[in-house]
Each structure stands twice: as C-alpha cells, then as structure tokens.
Nucleic acid binder design. Structure first.
Lengths: 266, 266
DNA sequence: AGACATTTAAATGTCTGACAAATGAAAAGT
DNA sequence: ACTTTTCATTTGTCAGACATTTAAATGTCT
C-alpha cells in the first residue's frame, strides 16, 4: 500500500484520504466492512494507533461507523440528509463566525437562496408544510415567548417554507443559509426588531404559500430582506455612535462581548 | 472535567464534542492554543492516545491545526472559504452518491440555486469574471478536449458565473450545488450531449453577464436546465429499454458499473 | 556587544504490548 | 428443538517508550 513517508501530511491523514477516496470513487460502498484495524495496520505498514487515528478522522465526517465485538469493525456509513444537514450547518456557522463577513453580505446570500425556492414551493407545498408554518406562526404570537424561542421558531418557519419545495436536496442546501445565518442575524437584530412586523410578514408568506402564489412569495421575501437589512444597518449605526462616544475613555471593545476567552476548557 | 463513562459515545467523541462546543461558543477563538496532549489527558482523565483520537476528529473538520516542536501544539484554525467549500462539496457529493436521488431532483435543485445568483451577477460582475468565463468558453471549443476536461471546464465556467455575484458567502453555498452535482450530471449525460449546444448556451450566458441582463441570464439558465433534464430523461429511457431487453438473461445490473467493489483497499 | 553555533526542553508523531469490554457464532447441554 | 455456555474476534483504552521537530536559552567567538 502506498503511503509516502516523505509527505508533509501525517500517516493518519494520508490513510484517511486513501480510504475516503475509495469510498467516494465507489470502491467501497454503503455497508461494506473495512478490514480490521490489525489488518489495516499490516496493509499500510503502520501501527494500530495510527490506523485508529485515521478511522477517527473518517468517523468525524460520518463516513464510517464502528461496531465492537466479533464480526464488528468499521463499516461504510450511509450519509443521511439529517447528518449532512448538521455538518453543513456546523461548517457554515463556523465559516461565518471566524471570518469577518458583513451583515449585508450574509443577508443578501441568505435571501437570494431562499427566494430560489419560491417556484417549487408554490408548485409542491402540501398541507403538512402549511400546518408546520401555521404552528410556528402561532408560537411566534405567544405573549411570554423568550427571545431564544422566537428565534428558534423563526428558523423552523423558514425551514418549513423551503421544505415546501418538495425537493430534499434543495432543503439540505438551504440549511446552510437559513439555519446558520438566521441565528446570527437574530443575535444582531433581536434587540430592535418588532415581533409584530415579522409575524405580519410571516403571515403574508403563509398566505402566499397557501395560494401557491410564487410571485407574492418572492415579493414578501424581498420585503423581509429589506426590513432585515434596514434593521441591521440601524443597529450598526447605533453601535458606531456609541463606540465613538466612549472611544476616548475605553479603547478595546471591538470584539463581541459574547466571547469569554478563558483559554482553558474547564 | 465532565466526560461520562456511561455515555454511549466513545471518550474521544465526547472530548471532541466538548472542544468543538468551546470553539463554536467562542470560548476558544482563532489561533488560541489548546493545552498540550499531556495536559488534556490529565484534564479529561484519559490516556494520551484517546486525546489524540479526539484531536484527529477535530483536525478532520479543519477546526484545529497542529504544530510540532517546543511551543507547538494544537491551535484553533480559521476556517477559510476554500476549506469550507471543499468540505461542503465532499459532503454533498457523498450525500448524492449514497442516497437514491432522481436525476430530476438533483437537476431542479442545482438550477434553482444557480438562478438565485442572476440578479447579483448582473449587478456585481467585474471584468475578471467575464475573462474567466471567456477562457473556459475557449477551452470548451478545443477540438481534442477529453470528456473529463470538458466537464471540468463546465464546472469552472459556472463557478466563474456565480462568483460574479461578488458575494463570497453565496459562492460558497453554490459550491455544493454546482461542484457536487454537475460532475454527477455529466457522468450521466456525457455520452449523449452535444458540446456545440452547451457551448452555445454558455456563450449566451456570457453575453447576458456582459450586458448585465439578469432576465436573460435567468432565461438562459432555464434553457440549460430544460436541455439537461431532457437529456437525462432520454438517457434513462435508453437504459431502461436496454435493461428490459437483457433482463431475461442477466439479472443484477442495477447498480452503476462504475463501482468495482473489490472490498479490499490494495 | 553582537553574531553565530550549540544545547536543551517541550511538544507532537509513532510504535509496542497489553488488557477490558462487547458481540455474535459455535459448541455444549437440556 | 431450544437454551445456555464458551470462545474467538474486534474495537476501546491504557501505559510507557522512542523519534522528530522546533524555538528558546545558552555558550562561544569575533
């Protein structure tokens, strides 16, 4: 077996790549059993811990599952929509939080993508999707709802909307836009936004979906985008003037106060 | 440190999750150094190999990088657009290949998403994007171009198009649709498609982008979607009749012949 | 004093060998 | 025929060791 001792990468990374390529290329298909760790160690001519590190890498990507005991081992795992969605949301969330991305850019991308669903939603939405949307609408009007719960319901509403496209691949792709970005936007705007106005727009979206009216769905999404953009900008302006006011006395308040940065993990 | 010996999950999985959560929550920020493996082993009260397996899981998700030597260690890594895009494409490719997804569904999702870029492309494309598209157009007309190279150029053309949106977040999200699905579609349709017709449609897309004409961009993408859908259906019909003809003599040819399925890795 | 070479400590990368725990198959017993 | 026991296989975990890399600290020479 070909692993390059002179390569920059670790053995475990090289081995993981070799197995991953075998899965992607189809040499290993769903539910195929990989050789045992001992056998792999012999095939690749490395020790068992090294093989184990490689397998853990693959497990982290949900490419394999392992089973203990006789006739156990590592098996190629079928990547489910739910797994894929989770990974996509995690990756998107991290990308957004680790890179300085303007509110406008994120907002633009999110709504451009959601709008791409309107035709299919108008065509394919069934009663179950409308019911899910109606349920979230009801939740959003509860008087004592916490901000977190409102945000969660907001995400669920939009998820139900895009699920109405009846296209699971599209829904999966949308997760990165909606489930990763919406919470970030909410975190920025929740202080200033008006729940009533949002519920109003959600109600309009619901009505348009009920009527299978793609054009109105698109219009309402544009309205929601405009509202969100305006809100975001006003929040940033407010922060800007606040910062300017106290910049003389207090210098570094630049990064989000959410980050506690204790260094340790305890 | 809290790791649950009774949990169903491995220690390494639990530890990886604990650290991942610390990164996502912001307790650990970009370029923070994690404690050394030895220290982590003591904090979590497990052995060093177990810690290493946890760290490899995080490395597989590009969440950390490691550096050898004194003052080395594991550092929180900034997830770049390129990394995120690669992961997204890999996940999407696997999702598509491991689940039985109809050609129509994939096609629908892919073009719905690409169409969501047209407004921004018309608004924000700069000369560099047009140049990249023109270059790929030239490549696609080379007489001796291999099928693989044509497919590659096809993907590059569409990538240049969506990059024209000037929104890196949108480009990243599109990667899952275009870079993961286009190759699959090509694999199905490359036998029957007409390069001339595709080049023709690409040329029209290029012209519309040059003219900043969003409506025409959308129209041309719909035309390309229709062409691809028709092509895909005719290919499947052909296969269907072929299969019916030989179904008496030969039973199981259901899965793609691309899969060699040797079981081993050597 | 400053520039260069050497040493050293800290950290990851890897290996060996061992034991524990789970698990399904086969053997034994009823 | 059914149940129980045994057993081999395989992953999960640990301990200890050595190799390699790296940068800071130290030493040495000009």
């Amino acid at each position: 077996m070909k692993i390059d001792p002179n390569s920059a990468a670790d053995f475990s990374a090289q081995i993981a790549k070799a197995i991953r390529d075998a899965i992607i290329s189809g040499d290993l298909i769903v539910d195929d059993r990989l050789p045992s760790e001992q056998e792999l160690a012999e095939q690749f001519d490395v020790s068992r811990p090294t093989i184990r590190e490689a397998l853990k890498r693959l497990a982290a990507q949900s490419l394999i599952r392992t089973q203990r005991g006789a006739f156990g081992g590592a098996f190629v795992r079928r990547l489910s929509y739910e797994e894929a969605r989770k990974q996509h949301v995690t990756t998107s969330t991290l990308l957004l939080s680790m890179n300085e991305i303007s509110f406008d850019t994120a907002c633009q991308a999110r709504f451009a993508m959601e709008r791409s669903c309107v035709r299919l939603v108008a065509q394919n939405r069934i009663q179950a999707h409308l019911d899910a949307m109606a349920h979230e609408l009801a939740v959003q009007q509860l008087p004592d709802l916490s901000d977190e719960a409102f945000c969660g319901s907001d995400v669920a509403f939009h998820r139900a909307l895009v699920d109405g496209s009846g296209n699971p691949v599209l829904s999966y792709q949308m997760a990165g836009a909606i489930e990763a970005m919406q919470p970030l936007m909410n975190m920025i705007t929740f202080t200033d936004r008006s729940r009533a106005e949002i519920v109003d727009m959600h109600t309009a979206l619901f009505a348009a979906a009920t009527d299978r009216d793609a054009t109105r769905l698109e219009q309402e999404l544009i309205r929601l985008e405009d509202y969100t953009l305006t809100l975001g900008r006003s929040v940033f302006e407010k922060r800007q003037s606040l910062r300017a006011a106290r910049s003389v006395s207090n210098e570094r308040t630049k990064s989000s106060p959410i980050i506690s940065q204790n260094g340790g993990l305890s």
